[in-house]
């Protein structure tokens, strides 16, 4: 299915995206290791170019399939990587700290690498998947997961910052822990708000497709587990004696749950969502 020229264009854009993300990651690493500001700047541009190519690839696929490209493992994986890129760019721009790039690009690259391993065949949608609510549900999931990806990277920096107190590079390029904690919190807040929206729109879709808005399907249950983990994170931040390190650990664990909800549940636990 799909116009062969468009299929080829999508493929070319997809590989260009991968190459640009890889270049961005390499540049961020070198910048961070050698303290070369210019390389850091270049890495940012490579990420932006990768994001533009990625947007192009998704748009072409959308045109090819005649719908939003959000319906199978490949489409969701590549959109997931797109969401992390988008959130990474937003956070890089808002908080102006380049070192974040060195931690977030590997996550983006891993997710898009996973997408590259999936079948790219465009298939028609089964009736239950033809729903506007479902389209909203999955689009918002991309933003939520993207924001959690950023919080994972920032929390990892927080946890490493403790050990790297002596390193001049860390002192120069990575903000103090208090600020890292706040940035991670902003990312989790964005992700949590969107995840709540994802769960609610998913429930609305389930109600119209299956007749029940909550049926403890494994994917639903894991989305709820992820939501609870981030709720714990939010509470740890306001509890005396627990904020900081414990909260950062929860933010990191939360992202592992996000990945499990997305990949693990489909492959390890069967359920209504197994086709997604």
């Amino acid at each position: 299915m799909g116009n062969p020229m468009l299929v080829r264009a999508e493929s070319a854009l997809f590989y260009a995206t991968m190459a640009l993300y890889l270049a961005s990651m390499a540049l961020y690493f070198t910048f961070f290791a050698l303290k070369r500001e210019r390389l850091g700047k270049l890495a940012g541009w490579a990420l932006l170019a990768g994001f533009a190519a990625h947007t192009g690839a998704l748009a072409v696929r959308g045109v090819c399939a005649g719908r939003l490209p959000l319906s199978n493992q490949y489409e969701f994986a590549t959109s997931f990587a797109w969401g992390i890129s988008l959130c990474a760019l937003i956070f890089l721009w808002c908080f102006r700290f380049r070192a974040l790039g060195a931690f977030i690009t590997p996550v983006i690259f891993l997710v898009i690498g996973y997408a590259a391993l999936q079948s790219r065949e465009i298939r028609s949608l089964m009736p239950a998947l033809q729903s506007n609510w479902l389209a909203v549900h999955v689009s918002t999931a991309i933003i939520a997961y993207g924001a959690f990806g950023v919080s994972f990277a920032v929390s990892a920096m927080y946890l490493l910052r403790e050990r790297m107190e002596g390193s001049a590079i860390w002192r120069e390029y990575v903000p103090e822990r208090e600020k890292l904690d706040l940035i991670s919190y902003r990312a989790v807040a964005l992700g949590f708000l969107f995840l709540t929206f994802v769960i609610i729109t998913g429930a609305i879709w389930a109600e119209s497709a299956w007749g029940s808005y909550w049926s403890w399907d494994p994917k639903e249950t894991w989305a709820l587990i992820t939501w609870f983990i981030y709720a714990i994170y939010l509470h740890l931040r306001v509890s005396r004696g627990w904020h900081g390190r414990a909260a950062a650990i929860f933010a990191a664990v939360g992202f592992v749950c996000v990945i499990f909800t997305y990949i693990g549940v489909n492959t390890l636990i069967p359920g209504i969502h197994s086709y997604a």
Partner: peptide, 17 residues
């Protein structure tokens, strides 16, 4: 509250696995 949330998480993990 945190203890309850943790227990709920454990229940959900058991219920999905």
């Amino acid at each position: 509250a945190l203890a309850i949330l943790l227990l709920l998480i454990l229940a959900c993990v058991a219920g999905s696995v």
